[in-house]
Design a protein around this nucleic acid. Structure first.
Length: 589
DNA sequence: CTAGGGTTAG
């Protein structure tokens, strides 16, 4: 196309008169805008991958454009959006004539790269102008892709205009009709994602043509928003169903916590996709049914993909089965299985390591990530912060924390808990202040960190004030863990009765950790009466644990209650509990 | 050839 023709087409476009055209950027500006987002993780491995895809064998000149297009689309389809965009930028530098199909792939990649990124809007605007200038905005594929990009913005008005301004007399025939359907589906999905059910409904109702995707989006949106009846009604009316339709309904039941109904659907659906298995497994993950999840995982029919492995690793991690999580991780790395883990896998793996306090494996995982070129995202950084604080490496934890792109409740809490644990009381309080200044609301975990910081510093009044402000000011009801910290602090400071009163008025049934904290305090201050109460509660709650017997026994010994010592020893013998090393009182009796 | 259903951190 000559530049004159380009300009004419450009002027004919309704967007020419809008300020979109002011955003125009030529190849160089486009490169500048997109490049910071394209940085490859510094590693030989990814560099190699990048090289492989650019080092094409020599081609006849006429085929060069096609080759670029194929390479760009292949990268986008195989889930390498960075590589796709980088390839496109390279093709511009080598004066390749942009092909609409390549641009559609680039737009798709950009929307994946910039999802929820503050620059998404700028990127969309520039690419819009870019398309306009190339005269490709009217082409159905890039146009639909751009609509998709705009639909992902909080403000969907640009997406709407693109749809509305579509020339009524199709230049592109069937492709354009299909493109319109796809664009509407994009917009529909975005409206549902942002929870605007009414707008989604009205779009859906006035769509001239609907396909499975439109119906599925609607069913999924309604089901997730809790309108299960409406979702089922639509599901029944669907002219055609696929696995995704069933998955959408399953999701709805899982969101309501109705696992049995979800499982029923799962078993009766005609064809199960990978997603169906993973949806069900993640449902069991949330409900804490590790066993059912594991069984399903083993039953997966086709090859388990990365999503499946990640779902299983995270299932074990989230439910406190760290050993099992690492076992599953090891399985996926076995040569005959070999699924390449990604940052999501490592987030769970690192978290499992810190649950176990296994710094060595955690550090191995960290270096492994470095060597295969997995960049640290905020989730991973937060998991690593947790690992390092639990191993007492606070300087490294602070480095990781300061390197976060965005700090949120989770990362602040991880840091505050770490400071609390490592006796860095001042830092914990400062972080809490910093967090409040940043208008980030604390949650239950934040207060675990703060309270343990006060507790470690022995600051009784501050802890009390914090404990009460947590429910009064922040509307967070204290959990078992908060009570345990308070009982421990009160008890260690000798306020045994107050600690006991706190336990008695707890809204939930105190567990062994709470009574154990009191028992420990009683041992410290040699209180036989309360120690007995706490001890017997512990025996009841954790019958197999001999440590509680030894604690209470030592309290008896200190008070010269030898009859009671003897009785305790008999109970232990009856239950077949072994004497622990250091349980000298048993011998003394 | 684009659009929908799934996996991540305290």
């Amino acid at each position: 196309m000559t530049s004159g023709a380009k300009l004419t087409q450009c002027r004919r476009d309704p967007f020419y008169r809008t300020n979109v055209v002011k955003n125009y950027c030529g190849p160089e500006e486009l490169v500048t805008l997109l490049t910071p987002e394209l940085r490859f993780p510094c590693s030989k491995f990814s560099h190699l991958l990048f090289k492989c895809s650019t080092d094409c064998p020599p081609m006849p000149a006429a085929d060069v454009n096609t080759t670029w297009t194929l390479a760009i689309r292949a990268a986008a389809d195989q889930g390498h959006p960075r590589r796709a965009v980088a390839l496109y930028l390279s093709s511009l530098r080598s004066a390749c004539r942009p092909c609409p199909f390549a641009l559609a792939a680039v737009l798709k990649s950009v929307s994946r790269l910039f999802a929820a990124h503050p620059l998404l809007s700028a990127a969309a605007g520039s690419l819009h102008a870019h398309l306009l200038r190339l005269g490709l905005l009217a082409h159905p594929y890039p146009r639909a892709a751009l609509t998709h990009l705009y639909a992902r913005l909080p403000d969907t008005s640009h997406a709407h205009s693109l749809l509305d301004e579509t020339p009524p007399r199709p230049v592109w025939g069937r492709a354009q009709a299909h493109s319109l359907l796809v664009s509407r589906n994009s917009l529909l999905a975005s409206l549902l994602r942002s929870g605007d059910l009414a707008a989604a409904r009205s779009l859906f109702d006035c769509m001239p043509v609907r396909d499975v995707v439109s119906w599925n989006s609607m069913v999924a949106g309604l089901a997730k928003a809790g309108h299960l009846d409406e979702a089922i009604e639509l599901f029944d009316r669907m002219p055609e169903r696929n696995a995704a339709s069933w998955n959408a309904l399953m999701c709805g039941y899982i969101a309501q916590g109705n696992l049995s109904k979800a499982r029923e659907l799962f078993e009766q659906m005609p064809v199960r996709s990978n997603v169906s298995w993973i949806t069900m497994i993640s449902g069991y993950t949330k409900s804490g049914d590790v066993h059912a999840a594991g069984e399903l995982f083993e039953r997966i029919e086709n090859k388990k993909d990365l999503y499946a492995w990640n779902a299983m690793v995270s299932c074990y991690t989230k439910n406190g089965c760290a050993r099992e999580a690492l076992a599953v991780f090891n399985r996926m790395l076995k040569p005959h299985v070999w699924v390449m883990p990604n940052e999501k896998t490592f987030s769970s793996v690192i978290s499992a390591c810190s649950q176990l306090g296994d710094l060595r494996f955690g550090l191995w995982a960290e270096s492994f990530m470095g060597s295969v070129g997995i960049a640290l995202d905020d989730h991973l950084r937060t998991a690593l912060v947790d690992l390092h604080t639990k191993s007492g490496r606070m300087d490294r934890a602070f480095d990781l924390f300061r390197g976060l792109g965005m700090r949120d409740v989770v990362s602040y809490s991880a840091m505050i808990v770490g400071c609390g644990m490592n006796g860095m009381f001042n830092e914990a309080v400062n972080l809490f202040k910093e967090m409040s200044d940043a208008k980030i609301d604390p949650n239950a975990v934040t207060f675990v960190g703060l309270l343990s910081a006060y507790s470690n510093a022995g600051l009784m009044e501050e802890a009390r004030a914090c404990f009460s402000s947590m429910s009064v000011k922040y509307k967070i009801s204290p959990s078992m863990e908060h009570y345990t910290i308070m009982v421990d602090l009160l008890g260690r400071s000798g306020k045994l009765n107050e600690a006991y009163q706190l336990i008695v008025q707890m809204p939930m049934k105190p567990d062994a950790s709470v009574w154990g904290a009191l028992l420990l305090a009683c041992r410290l201050h040699n209180d036989v009466e309360l120690g007995e109460i706490a001890g017997y509660k512990c025996f009841e709650l954790e019958p197999g644990e001999s440590g509680y017997y030894i604690l209470l026994g030592n309290i008896y010994v200190e008070a010269n209650e030898w009859d009671k010592v003897k009785r305790l020893r008999n109970i232990m013998a009856e239950k077949g509990l072994n004497k622990m090393p250091g349980s000298s009182w048993v011998q003394a009796a």
